[in-house]
Structures are given as structure tokens and as C-alpha cells.
């Protein structure tokens, strides 16, 4: 009787514990910062750099440990399930109790891992937003900058000059000034070399724009795509959280059913009435 009371209270404690959120221990954090050095990297390298930083963080290392613990727990659950099939009587009760306990611990581990993943994803999203903000800020500053605007004007003026270069050269010929100046000669020779070098730079793989599929995109577009991927992952994590809540509910119901069975017997057990002396049975003695 005492054993049964202790076991039922333990089961009750486990069923309550299934809904308890296990907090991540201190020192298992990831605190990324969108530094200026990060912004200078190509967008696809930014993604890899962030992922690398996360994988080296205490949070990621703890997630790896949790994953290992969950795998071990899962194999224990499977072996217990097989044992239960062949057990009966008190052994069955004990093993069912053990199973509920193991399931509860497994859910605790999963919930802790889920919490850490949510945390990591939220920080990644904040980091991507910070990177995007800084990229936009930098592009805005560059476009508003006076030197940038002056360079734009020079580029437009150069284009305008290109349109009439042939015309000016032919007017020089008419004036009898068609002998090319040293500047013009050397400029022409260097120009071809400059164009070849510029082509080599633009085709260099370290200078390649990030791509989405096969389409080259700007850094801003790439980071926006990363943010979209993060929000997709967020939706999936939210769905997993819902699954966990249903699994926890099932474990709580299993614990409750086990408690009721131990305390009141299973469903097939009928309520027995004690024998009592009925007045009709002893009425003859009083006649």
C-alpha cells in the first residue's frame, strides 16, 4: 500500500513535470554582432561566417550534447517498449512507470533543444536584419556622398564625350591636325590593357556576386532571401513546438492512467460490494 502511494505520487510529479519548461543552463549562449568587418564580406560568405560562428558557440555545442542524449534516450525507450510486450503483473507496472519516466525525460531534452534552436534562430534573424540595415545605410551614404555624385557626373560627361569623339577627330583631320598626339597614342595602347585587367577582375571568383539559383543578385537581395529562409524555419519550429505539446499531453495522460490503474485497478475490474447481513435473512430469528 505504501509502495503504491509512493509510486502514484511519483507518477503525479512526472505528469506535472511534463509541462514544465526546462531552462537552458547559464553559459550556453550565442551572442553574434554585425561588425563592420562582417558587412564587407560578400553576402554568401556572410551566411557561412554566421553559421561558422554559431557552430563554434557554447549554444551549438550544447545542442550537439542534447542531440546525443536524445539518441541514447530513444534507444532506451525502444528497448523498454519491447520488454513491456513480454511482461505482466508487477513487472509490467514497473516497466510502464519506467517508460513514462523515460518519455518525460526525453521530452524535456527535446524541449530544451527546441528552446535553444528558437533562441539561435531569433538571434540569426536579428543579425540578418542588422546586416541588411548596415548594407542599406552604406549604400545610402555612398549614393548621397558628394564625391560619389561628382564621380557620377564625370561618368555621364565621359559618356557624352564618347558620343562625339569621332566627330571631333574628323574635325581635327579637316583642320590638318590629324597627327595624333603622344597622349592619344599611349592612351589607346593602355586602354586595351586596362579593359583586359578590368575584365579579369570582374570575372575573378572572389569578386563574384552572390547567386540565388543561377541568377546573380546584390548583397541586399541575398540577405533578404536569408531572412525569408529564417522565417520559414521559424514556422517549422512553431509546428514542432505544437507537436511537443501534444506529445507532452499524451505522456501526462499515460501517467494519469497508470496512477488510476494502480490506485483503482484497471477498467475490467468491477466494483465489489462487501457482504452484509440483510434484515430479511435474520427476520426468522425474531418471529
Amino acid at each position: 500500500m505504501n509502495t503504491r502511494i509512493i509510486m502514484s505520487s511519483l507518477i503525479l510529479a512526472i505528469s506535472l513535470g511534463c509541462t514544465h519548461f526546462v531552462l537552458a543552463s547559464e553559459g550556453r549562449n550565442w551572442d553574434p554582432v554585425a561588425s563592420d568587418k562582417l558587412i564587407k564580406l560578400p553576402a554568401n560568405i556572410i551566411e557561412k561566417r554566421i553559421q561558422q560562428d554559431f557552430e563554434a558557440s557554447p549554444m551549438a555545442l550544447h545542442l550537439v550534447e542534447l542531440e546525443q542524449d536524445m539518441q541514447d534516450k530513444l534507444s532506451q525507450l525502444k528497448s523498454l517498449g519491447e520488454l513491456i510486450a513480454d511482461s505482466e503483473g508487477d513487472d509490467l507496472i514497473n516497466q510502464r512507470f519506467e517508460l513514462v519516466q523515460q518519455k518525460s525525460e526525453y521530452l524535456d531534452l527535446m524541449q530544451e533543444a527546441q528552446g535553444l534552436r528558437q533562441n539561435a534562430l531569433a538571434k540569426k534573424q536579428q543579425l540578418y536584419e542588422s546586416v541588411l540595415g548596415k548594407l542599406r545605410n552604406k549604400n545610402g551614404r555612398i549614393s548621397k556622398d558628394e564625391v560619389y555624385q561628382l564621380k557620377q557626373k564625370q561618368a555621364q560627361a565621359r559618356e557624352r564625350m564618347q558620343n562625339v569623339m569621332a566627330q571631333v577627330d574628323s574635325s581635327l583631320m579637316h583642320k590638318g591636325l590629324d597627327k595624333r598626339s603622344p597622349y592619344a597614342d599611349e592612351f589607346a595602347v593602355n586602354l586595351a590593357k586596362v579593359e583586359a585587367l578590368k575584365n579579369a577582375i570582374s570575372q575573378h571568383k572572389a569578386n563574384a556576386s552572390p547567386t540565388l539559383g543561377d541568377v546573380e543578385v546584390t548583397s541586399e537581395e541575398y540577405v533578404r532571401q536569408l531572412l525569408m529562409q529564417a522565417s520559414t524555419e521559424q514556422s517549422l519550429l512553431d509546428q514542432e513546438a505544437l507537436m511537443f505539446s501534444y506529445m507532452a499531453k499524451l505522456v501526462a495522460l499515460d501517467a494519469q492512467a497508470l496512477e488510476y490503474e494502480i490506485s483503482y485497478g484497471d477498467e475490467s475490474t468491477e466494483l465489489t460490494q462487501r457482504n452484509r447481513t440483510k434484515p430479511a435473512d435474520v427476520a426468522d430469528l425474531f418471529l
Partner: peptide
């Protein structure tokens, strides 16, 4: 004129 249009130091 062509030199000035190609000279980045000016801008």
C-alpha cells in the same frame, strides 16, 4: 578635355 574626363583624381 579627354584627360579631365578620365582623371579620377579630379573627382
Amino acid at each position: 578635355e579627354r584627360m579631365v574626363l578620365r582623371d579620377d583624381r579630379v573627382t
